Amino acid sequence: MSGILDSVNQRTQLVGQNRLELLTFRLNRRQRYGINVFKVKEVLQCPKLTSMPHLHPFVKGVAYIRGQTILVIDMSLATGGRPVDDVSNCFIIISEFNRSVQGFLVSAVERIVNINWEAILPPPKGAGRNNYLTAVTEIENELVEILDVEKILDQISPVDTRLSSELLDEISLITPTVKTVLVADDSMVARKQVQRAIESIGCNCICVKDGKEALRTLQMMAKNGSIYDQLALVISDIEMPEMDGYTLTAAIRNDPALKDLHVILHTSLSGVFNQAMVERVGANAFIPKFNPDELGRAVKNAMTTVTAVSVSS
Rank of each mutant, 00 (worst) to 15 (best):
T177Y: 15
A232G: 11
E138P: 01
L233S: 01
A135I: 05
L153F: 09
E142M: 11
I146R: 00
I171M: 10
I227F: 06
L215H: 00
N141K: 15
S226K: 06
R216A: 12
D154M: 04
D210V: 09
L168T: 01
L133C: 06
K209V: 12
G211F: 13
A197T: 15
D185N: 11
V178M: 09
C205D: 05
G126M: 13
D237P: 05
V189D: 00
S164I: 08
V183E: 04
E150R: 02
Y132P: 07
K212N: 07
N141M: 12
V234I: 10
A190Y: 12
S187F: 15
A127K: 08
I146T: 01
N224S: 14
N204C: 07
I238V: 13
G225S: 13
Y132V: 08
A184I: 14
M220F: 07
R216Y: 09
Q155T: 12
L173H: 08
L231N: 01
A184E: 12
M188W: 11
R216P: 00
A127R: 15
T161W: 11
V208F: 15
R196I: 15
T217R: 14
E145D: 11
V234N: 02
K151G: 04
Q195M: 15
V183L: 10
I174H: 07
E170N: 05
I238D: 08
T177A: 13
N224K: 11
I139R: 05
E199P: 03
Q219H: 01
